[in-house]
């Protein structure tokens, strides 16, 4: 059923972008001088690199923090605090992305502009994205830890292992597969995020040379230009959608690959 839906989406994307492939070769989407679709220039690689860099950056920040947050609320926090802490994280996961974007644009971007103008940049996008995927990582990792049989921990305690040793050597390896799929879930969310990134990334189509350069992601490109696009311009936007879809599909296959590996313990 879901396979059929994905197939339909793919057919739709291909169908919409077909009109441009008839007279613009695929290589021009990689080799053109820039992205100026109204002047017939269709290079989408800067947006691809922006999407990958912002996603990877967000994961580098959010993964250790998310795991630490899960360990804190499951093992270290007193029961009362842990309950409230978990509620807070769940609330964080429920905040609409546009709210994060607005906060980023009006609060975070001016702060970063004091460091290095223009403020809206790859760094701002990474910070906002990591804030957004942090709850996803924290909640899935905590669920994965909770799924580790209690007997493992009891056994570790009986052996007289310290709390940190049993977490490091028993709990985390046992929860390994759940943690990986949580990270992949967060990756999917970071790649697909549109509104917040659109507001804080600056949206200039360029390969970033530093963290303070403004970038445009594939999703932001579609949201920014679709409303007024016609003809080839519109079809070119569907090509960016197609590229995005392929990226997500690769990610899903990767997730399936990791899942197949048996748990360490």
């Amino acid at each position: 059923m879901s396979a059929a839906v994905i197939l339909l989406i793919l057919i739709f994307l291909l169908n919409e972008s077909l009109s441009i492939f008839q007279h613009v070769s695929v290589s021009r989407f990689i080799n053109d001088a820039s992205w100026h679709p109204q002047q017939g220039l269709y290079n989408i690689t800067p947006m691809l690199s922006a999407t990958i860099l912002s996603t990877v950056g967000a994961l580098i920040l959010a993964t250790p923090l998310g795991i630490a947050s899960a360990l804190f609320s499951y093992f270290y926090a007193p029961k009362f605090l842990a309950t409230w802490y978990r509620r807070l994280i769940e609330l964080l996961a429920g905040i609409p992305s546009v709210v994060y974007g607005l906060w980023g644009l009006t609060t975070l971007a001016p702060l970063i502009a004091q460091l290095h103008p223009p403020g809206v940049s790859l760094l701002t996008a990474i910070l906002i994205l990591s804030l957004m995927v942090l709850p996803t990582v924290a909640l899935t990792v905590e669920a994965a830890i909770a799924a580790v049989p209690a007997s493992y921990l009891q056994g570790a305690m009986a052996l007289g292992l310290s709390r940190w040793t049993s977490i490091k050597c028993i709990i985390l390896p046992a929860a390994h597969s759940g943690i990986t799929s949580g990270i992949l879930l967060a990756t999917g969310r970071a790649i697909g995020e549109t509104m917040a990134v659109l507001m804080v990334a600056g949206n200039v189509v360029q390969h970033p040379h530093s963290l303070f350069d403004s970038v445009r992601t594939l999703t932001a490109n579609i949201a920014l230009e679709m409303a007024y696009a016609m003809g080839d311009h519109r079809a070119a936007l569907f090509v960016s959608g197609l590229v995005l879809m392929i990226m997500v599909l690769l990610l899903v296959f990767m997730a399936a690959f990791f899942k197949r590996k048996p748990a360490y313990v």
Binding site: S34, H36, Q38, Q39, L41, P117, P118, V120, L198, G202, N203, V204, V205, S214, R216, A223, L224
Partner: peptide, 13 residues
């Protein structure tokens, strides 16, 4: 101007 000549730092919707 043409849009290729413009050198923006931020692009908005």
């Amino acid at each position: 101007l043409t849009n290729t000549q413009v050198k923006p730092h931020v692009v908005i919707g």
